[in-house]
Simulated scan of single mutants.
Amino acid sequence: MPKKSALITGITGQDGSYLAELLLDEGYDVHGMVRRASTEKFDRIEHLRDQITFHQGDLLDQRSLVDAIRSSKPDEIYNLAAMSFVATSWIQPTLTADFTGVGVTRMLEAMREAAPEARFYQASSSEMFGKVLEVPQTEATPFYPRSPYGVAKAYGHFITVNYRESYDLHATSGILFNHESPRRGLEFVTRKITWHAAAIKHGLQKELRLGNLDAERDWGYAKDYVKAMWLMLQRDTAEDYVIATNQSNTVRECCEIAFDEAGLGDFSKYVVIDEAFVRPAEVDHLIGSYDKAERDLGWKPETTFEQLIRLMTKADLELLKP
Rank of each mutant, 00 (worst) to 15 (best):
T94K: 05
D214F: 08
A97I: 04
R191C: 12
A258Y: 11
L233F: 00
A97W: 15
T194V: 07
I8C: 03
L24R: 09
W195D: 15
K300N: 12
T303P: 10
H196L: 09
R191P: 01
A6W: 00
K292G: 11
D260R: 06
L133W: 05
L286S: 09
T138N: 06
R191G: 04
D25T: 13
G185C: 01
E207V: 12
L95S: 14
K269T: 07
E165D: 15
A198R: 04
E76P: 05
R106F: 14
F54M: 06
R49V: 13
D284R: 06
T12R: 11
T105S: 07
M128H: 00
K73A: 14
E294F: 10
Q307I: 10
A238L: 08
L308R: 00
H170E: 00
M229G: 02
T245R: 10
R49Q: 12
G203C: 12
T194H: 03
E21V: 08
F188K: 13
K41P: 01
K73E: 10
H202F: 06
R279M: 13
Q62L: 03
D67F: 01
R164N: 11
Q14Y: 02
R70H: 07
D218M: 03
K314V: 15
I45N: 04
T237Y: 13
K269C: 08
Y155L: 07
E21G: 08
W219R: 08
Y155A: 03
V283D: 09
E40N: 09
I69G: 09
Q51I: 00
G263I: 13
L176T: 06
E26W: 00
M83K: 12
I159Q: 07
V278G: 01
M111Q: 11
A171W: 05
E113L: 11
L308I: 06
D224S: 03
A81S: 12
Y270H: 10
G150A: 11
P322S: 14
A20W: 03
E139D: 08
G13V: 01
E216K: 15
A238C: 11
H179V: 08
P74G: 01
W90D: 02
K192P: 00
E134G: 11
L186E: 12
D274A: 02
E46T: 12
D218V: 04
L320C: 07
D240N: 15
Y221M: 09
M1W: 05
T304C: 11
D15G: 05
E302Y: 04
